[in-house]
């Protein structure tokens, strides 16, 4: 009755789709990455060229700059989100009327299409239309123009990401905080520990798994951000916000240099995997240490 072949039969359609549209593209890009293939070049045929693409890639300043920008963006965004999200979650631990309502509001950004988030922030920041440049200039005399100033554009994309994803961190950490045991905190209060000591020695270690898991999920998302930034700045001014996804999609892809583009995609995937694995190893290693004692 319960033969495993029936089980495999149930799994078959899922595995087939994941193979054809997930694994096959990966294998394909793995092959093309080692070839020279450009359908509009003098020699449009696919030719095997070994590691030549990668040789070119490690000296490609635009690509390396874009990688650096992506890391910088992910770092600033995720750190701000964790810090801000933690404080919001702490504030939310208290009971007060209308809690459910506030919670609903904070879930809203999570379901909005990234492209619409980009549109929203564009409307906020466009000079001559958006309230942000207008009021910053009127109240503080600050000239805000993200199509002109590199740092402003970069930090606006970070702020946008913080606006979009802090609620996820808040709600995740809130769930973790609510499930913490009460005794260590009561004991610490009896022992006369101050707030910072309680935070540093009790809350933080207990929350570590939840924080690491959130960092992991947010990091993976931040590294592949494309839609919002494309809508907000188009990668500009210049290449100031051209994160790696945008770089592949808008700069390398239209050149139809398939071999080189595939090599770049592969290296991006490689770096994502390395980072992902390092975060995950950190996560698991910590848990194993805890289990040992």
């Amino acid at each position: 009755m319960r033969s495993s072949s029936v089980g495999w039969l149930f799994l078959a359609p899922t595995l087939l789709i994941l193979f054809v549209f997930g694994v096959l593209p990966f294998l394909y890009v793995l092959v093309i990455g080692f070839t020279q293939w450009n359908s509009f070049a003098a020699d449009p045929e696919m030719r095997f060229t070994g590691a030549d693409n990668f040789r070119r890639l490690v000296f490609d300043d635009q690509f390396l700059y874009s990688l650096w920008l992506t890391l910088k963006f992910a770092f600033f965004a995720v750190v701000s989100e964790i810090v801000l999200g933690y404080f919001l979650a702490q504030a939310f631990m208290r009971d007060f009327p209308g809690k459910g309502f506030f919670r609903t509001i904070h879930t809203l950004p999570l379901v909005i299409a990234p492209i619409a988030v980009g549109a929203t922030w564009r409307l906020l920041t466009v000079p001559g239309l958006g309230p942000l440049p207008y009021y910053l200039n009127r109240w503080f005399g600050y000239e805000f123009n993200i199509s002109r100033y590199i740092d402003q554009a970069f930090f606006t994309t970070v702020v946008m990401d913080v606006w979009h994803w802090t609620p996820l961190v808040t709600l995740t950490l809130l769930a973790a905080l609510s499930s913490l045991p009460k005794e260590p905190f009561e004991q610490a209060q009896i022992d006369g520990a101050n707030r910072f000591q309680i935070f540093w020695h009790i809350t933080l270690p207990l929350l570590k798994p939840a924080i690491l898991a959130t960092v992991f999920i947010r990091m993976m998302d931040a590294l592949r951000t494309v839609d919002e930034v494309w809508m907000l700045t188009g990668g500009g001014p210049g290449a100031a916000t051209r994160y790696i996804g945008l770089h592949i999609w808008r700069v390398v892809f239209p050149k139809t240099d398939y071999g080189y583009g595939s090599a770049m995609s592969l290296i991006t995937l490689y770096l994502t995997i390395v980072l992902c694995w390092m975060l995950y190893a950190g996560l698991v290693a910590r848990r194993d240490l805890k289990r040992a004692d």
Binding site: A51, F54, R55, V58, F59, I267, Y270, I273, V274, W277, A281, V284, A285, D288
Partner: peptide
């Protein structure tokens, strides 16, 4: 520094293989 099984070790070896080659192409080749 961490506990590993056979798959983890092969995985680390492959990651290092790629990393070393990229580094080599940029600085030593």
């Amino acid at each position: 520094p961490i506990e590993t099984n056979a798959f983890d070790r092969v995985f680390i070896a492959v990651l290092l293989f790629v990393a070393l080659h990229l580094f080599w192409m940029r600085f030593v080749e």
